[in-house]
Amino acid sequence: MDWRQLWEICSAPDNVPIVGLIPLLIFYIYLAWKQAKANDELIGELETSPAMAKTHHRKTWPFRPGWQKEIHVWPFLLRIEFLAAIIVTIILMVWSITLSAPLEEPSNPNLTMNPAKAPWYFLGLQEMLVYFDPWIAGVVMPTLIIVGLMVIPYIDTNPLGSGYYTWKQRKFAIGTFMFGFVILWVAMIIIGTFIRGPGWQWFWPGQTWDHNRLIYEVNRDLPDLFGLTSNLAKAIFGAIVVGGYYLAGGFLVHALFRRYNPKDYQRMSLLQYSIMMFFWLTMVALPLKMLLRLAFNIKYVWITPWFNV
């Protein structure tokens, strides 16, 4: 166990935000979960007794008749904003006094940094370079993430859970988002920051970074396993596999979604449904491709003269 190496990584000034992000995220997930649980219990109670549902104020916080429903922004909101600004300023001051921003040697195109890492918030995408070609990891994926986020309000037809934390009313939406944000975005950043060392190789926390380490990995392409040699056959084969994934996966998701989310399924238009399917399957394809690489050393699934997937 190389504590020094571990300390060097964790205390690198630009890694400190991620060290801070982990407990923050855990805290806020806990906070959301706590409120979701309370709301779900209240919803359960109200569902069983319609009489109570008619009179209840429908929040987990106390409310008594006679209490004002609205309060003045000044001072009740502004004092919170003012306090928040002061607290953030204090945190920033202390942080800036105790920890200096990194400054390396002057830039030198002839001396490559190893590992050369992108800023920490892009390390998830850089990690994807292990599994995908740059045109997917660096261009298509960010585009799909942005567009995918933007279509969310237009494909989520579930009217429940607007304006309060809940889990039971929005299992599919929240599960998907948590998977995308926590596993695919934050966890990949953590791997990129703490695990990836020289040559973008995998070093467990506490393992010494060995700049001379070689890994003998023979990566194969999926068509090779089936003995395909001609370019045309490889291209057609890959198209079938990728297309097959979307078809078979789509069918599987359809079967499950119909059963477990019948109301959403009913509400969604064909366009909304197919957009949701496309983004969902594309997102799930990510860990699947990673699994193919890690477990079976498969590099490409689809090989064409122009691009490889």
Binding site: L103, E104, S107, K117, L125, G138, V139
Partner: peptide, 21 residues
């Protein structure tokens, strides 16, 4: 800051743009 950190981070970042379809 024009140091090694920024230079290589931006090099890595913009190299992806080479691969834009």
């Amino acid at each position: 800051p024009d140091d090694q950190l920024g230079f290589w981070a931006v090099t890595v970042g913009t190299n992806m743009a080479r691969a834009t379809p």
